[in-house]
């Protein structure tokens, strides 16, 4: 799941979009962009909401749960909070995965 879209960001595959991350993925947020979300609220608004929830550069993140259907939505541990979101809304969050 994480291969193709991640490749466009980081050929080494160490940086992934949160929308493509797998259960158990763990790392640090390196970028929160305003580019790919096609939501009604618009990319700029989505970016602000994400930032307000604490999705900021430098935050520690771990994908701890996912839904049964299409692995969606997901629950992440963000620093010491737990947050649920849909993969579709998580595409602009880029994570540097911890080295295995």
């Amino acid at each position: 799941m994480s291969q193709s879209p991640a490749a466009s960001i980081d050929p080494a595959g160490l940086t992934v979009r949160l929308s493509d991350a797998r259960l158990g993925a763990r790392g640090t947020i390196v970028d929160v962009r305003a580019e790919s979300g096609a939501q009604s609220v618009g990319v700029v608004e989505l970016q602000r909401r994400l930032l307000e929830f604490g999705f900021v550069e430098g935050a520690r993140i771990e994908l701890i749960h996912e839904g049964a259907i299409g692995h969606d939505p997901i629950a992440v541990k963000l620093d010491d909070m737990r947050i649920a979101l849909r993969r579709a809304d998580a595409a602009d969050i880029l994570i540097a995965l911890d080295p295995a």
Partner: peptide, 13 residues
């Protein structure tokens, strides 16, 4: 159409 609100929610302790 297309009006999909993001789903972003804290899971409290």
């Amino acid at each position: 159409r297309s009006a999909v609100e993001p789903f972003l929610m804290e899971l409290p302790t």
